[in-house]
Design a protein around this nucleic acid. Structure first.
Lengths: 129, 129
DNA sequence: CTCTCTGCAAAACATTTGCAGTCGG
DNA sequence: CCGACTGCAAATGTTTTGCAGAGAG
């Protein structure tokens, strides 16, 4: 239902502000916790409703991780990047793979798939471990 | 805990048999339903436990779809591969990206990461949808 | 026999929804 | 004002877990 009117409220502004300050994908639960930390009292349900609305309007990207939590991030209109994560300490480095992007699109198209998207995460043990 | 002993039971054989007959990824719930259909009475919890054990032993691939259900499938081949998954019907095509493999290793090494592994899934809408 | 496995029901999660009251435009 | 928005609590849906009994080796 993209045609519904959408009002600008205090809690929506709060959610968007946290998203703006967060580079990586963040879960609804974590976002809600961060809001409480900084004093904003926004209901968890409202966080979910806001995130869903934004996803519907394509203002955030949503992806699922293996632990079952959905994670959200403001649509970076600029570049799409991936992450290199240390499996020991969680340290994260943003990486780019231009070749991967086009490769994924090409292969998908060859198999007749449209609206292609992909998830790519690289794991390793960083120098400190 | 990959070192735990693993016994061969009737219900595990039943789960594996369904997996063997299924080409695409299937959810635990759907697998459980299929078992009941064909007369096997296996508890839902057992299906989950079996699937988790197999995933831990790397005998099945597990992936999450946007609706929040995890889907499982027997590892088809021994070499490392990726998947192109239809987000509408779950139809899956195995794809290979030799360039991606080496790219991931290289980038990770540049950042001082060792023991590199990665996950890559491509999603799209297949020709039938 | 000895442990692992199973079933069932309850618990633990993430996420959604019903409703009465609130508030933006 | 009016209808969209919010908070809370209750409802959902998936997956996990505790525990007593069953069964593989």
């Amino acid at each position: 239902m993209p045609d519904t009117e959408r009002r600008a409220t205090k809690q929506r502004r709060a959610v968007e502000q946290v998203l703006r300050e967060t580079d990586d994908f963040i879960s609804a639960q974590a976002l809600h916790a961060r809001l409480r930390e900084q004093g904003d009292t926004v209901g968890l349900a409202t966080v979910y409703r806001t995130l869903n609305a934004m996803a519907e309007d394509e203002r955030v990207d949503m992806l699922r991780v293996d632990d079952g939590e959905a994670r959200y991030r403001l649509c970076a209109s600029d570049d799409h990047h991936h992450h290199l994560v240390c499996r020991e300490c969680g340290r994260t480095v943003e990486i780019e793979g231009p070749a991967v992007e086009s490769w994924a699109d090409t292969v998908a198209a060859q198999h007749g798939f449209r609206d292609v998207s992909h998830t790519l995460e690289v794991f390793g043990t960083c120098a400190k471990h």
